[in-house]
Simulated assay, not measured.
Amino acid sequence: MQRAYKVELKPTKQQIQKINQSLGICRWLYNTYLAKNQSLYQDFKDGKLAKKKAFMSANDFDKYINNEVKILEEYKWINDCGSKARKKAICNAEVSFKKFFKGEAQFPKFKKKGKSKVGLYFPKNNKTDWKIERHRVNIPTLKWVRLKEFGYIKTHAKVINGTVTEQAGRYYVSIVCEVNETQNNKPKSEPLGIDLGLKDFAIMSNQIAKKNINKTLRVKKLEKKLKREQRRLSRKYECLKEQNKTKKGEATRQNIHKQVVKVQRLHQRLANIRTDYINKCVAEIVEQKPSSITIEDLNVKGMMKNRHLSKAVAQQKFYEFRVKLTDKCRQNNIELRVVDRWYSSSKLCSCCGNIKKDLKLSDRVYICNECGLIIDRDIQASINLREAKTYKIA
């Protein structure tokens, strides 16, 4: 079984320069590949090319770069990046281009410096590549790079490949290792139903609720600070427009770059807080050792259309929670059930089975008109999910 480990790096100034240079080359190759295929497709539409020649594959583009572009004196800087990283960037562009024509994604966008994610891919070709020690890792072309977290990756791990990325001025490495799959076969307790929401993040059928981390004082302070820093950035852009008229905007551009990094780091810090909370919630749920876990297939795309709730829904990261819960359940041999999104978990009475059709979103307490049951709306939904008979196995 393959597992990825992501750790923050602590590179030297020379290594930072090398990483940034290589990332720039990979970004240029990605954009050039898209531009080349756009040009070929336009020639086909104008009747200048046959349909077979209207698309250039990643292999053909790689040969074109090696045989026609790199030999030019002004493009010799392409060799400053590793060949495998260059080829992977071109292959990623080809995959995104093909997904567009299959109807699986939108047309790929050109990657912009400072805004788009680009990774340096390095497979393990030699014995010395990706050699891991407690406090450092040997990355191809970068040699030994120090880690910020010691002992997270096992020193005897069998590495397959790795990717170096940059985000908000920080550098990370994701290492894919081959590990032995071990399943937890400990005795299980009763089934568990989980209802996800906005008031509370997760409400379980055993009446344990996980609070909404976005309502805490810590997150609210960071969001307020982010709003303030974004306002400063906007004003700097307005100032740059005025200075460009007099050709005195160089100092402002440098200040803008510093402010952009500040905003990016705040975004990253908020994302890390939410991701860490999801990891802890998933761990606590699995530690209860339920025989099965039932969740609802939420229509997140439809929920995002409500302009009053879209931000709150996006901050909850429901999809990330489901992905991580699925992975943890697979590791611990727990059956994860997914109920259809149209299942009336909130309107159905868990006592008599009556459906209350006039239930509103503002009604936080469920009162049954038939049997007189009074229960919290979210706990009611989690119990109904636990008892659901129609579901799919994730």
Score class of each variant (00 low, 15 high):
I71K: 11
N161K: 11
E250R: 11
L142D: 02
V179R: 01
K124M: 05
A283S: 15
I203P: 03
Y5A: 05
L359A: 09
T216P: 04
K210M: 14
K215Q: 14
K225C: 07
Q264A: 04
Y171Q: 06
G302M: 05
V7I: 15
I65A: 00
K99E: 13
K247P: 11
V338R: 07
I175N: 01
K111N: 06
S83L: 05
K10L: 15
Q38L: 13
A312P: 04
A85N: 05
K113N: 08
I19Q: 02
K211N: 12
S362K: 13
K262Q: 07
E250I: 01
E320Y: 06
S57M: 12
R322L: 06
E94G: 07
L233S: 01
V173A: 02
I273Q: 01
E94N: 15
R86F: 06
S346R: 12
Q2K: 15
N279V: 02
D378R: 13
P140L: 08
N185W: 01
S346G: 08
R337F: 10
N161S: 14
H156P: 10
K76L: 07
N272V: 01
T252C: 08
I393R: 11
N31L: 01
L192N: 08
Q254G: 00
G24C: 08
A105W: 02
Y277W: 10
R330H: 09
A388C: 13
C329A: 06
F318V: 09
T128W: 13
R170C: 02
N138D: 07
S310A: 14
K70N: 05
R232C: 13
V118S: 00
I175K: 03
H156T: 15
K389C: 08
L49D: 12
V282Y: 04
V261W: 00
N37E: 13
C26Y: 00
K247E: 05
K360Y: 06
Q207S: 12
L40E: 13
E242I: 15
K63E: 09
I393P: 03
T246G: 01
R341Q: 08
Y41E: 10
E181G: 09
I203V: 14
T141S: 11
K280M: 09
D129N: 07
K154A: 09
W144N: 14
